[in-house]
Amino acid sequence: MPNPEATSQDPSHTAASAQPASLPRLGMPAPLFEAVTTHGKIRLDDFHGNWLVLFSHPADFTPVCTTEFIAFAAIAPELRQRNVELLGLSIDSPTSHIAWVRNIKEKFGIDIPFPIIADLNKEIATLYGMIMPGESKTETSRCVFVIDPNGIVRAMIYYPLTTGRNTAEIIRLIDALQTTDKHHVATPANWKPGEKVIVPPPATMEEVDARLKAGFECTDWYFCKKAV
């Protein structure tokens, strides 16, 4: 990842620069950007060393998005404990974002603690494939990109305009990814912290023999669990 302390206007931070045309891919560096947000100008690599949940919503002052922002605000402290920052995005102006955030505070009593990108020219939305023309050509769908402390895309979730996201699943996903990184394991379906994890399957016969003697909870040679 580039030096996050660089002060010059580096064209590599602009979405319109020579970025690869392909959409973000799991395991690949997240496309760099510099964005106008409700907290000032932010570059992707300002988050170096933190996990980042970059998420888009269709539009300010819409009901499902409002419920989502309230939900994201509610999990912000839990995410912060996990070294995770939140960054919202929609194709709206900074003024609209500010007015909406103030409205949420006034009508629902909720502070929105994270910045929101004002992507009026759709540069970042296009870079990240957040616009689904089959749904809307003028709004971003409900996309979530989990980016790790090294700037690598680790997970992507796409929800349609009609369906609000499940923020508990986002926390569960973060917990799973961080557990994988810490213990070099995988996590089974519906895994939650405290439950046993999957030992990666062996790739060689030698590993199979070693695996079966290692004391794991094995149903078969390829299916072993352990506590972490």
Partner: peptide, 24 residues
Amino acid sequence: LPLFRVRGGLREMAEAGLIELSAG
């Protein structure tokens, strides 16, 4: 303050000539 916000803020203040960066 969150580190991401500090990085962005320091960069803007450096561009405004209020601070300067040397060797990190």
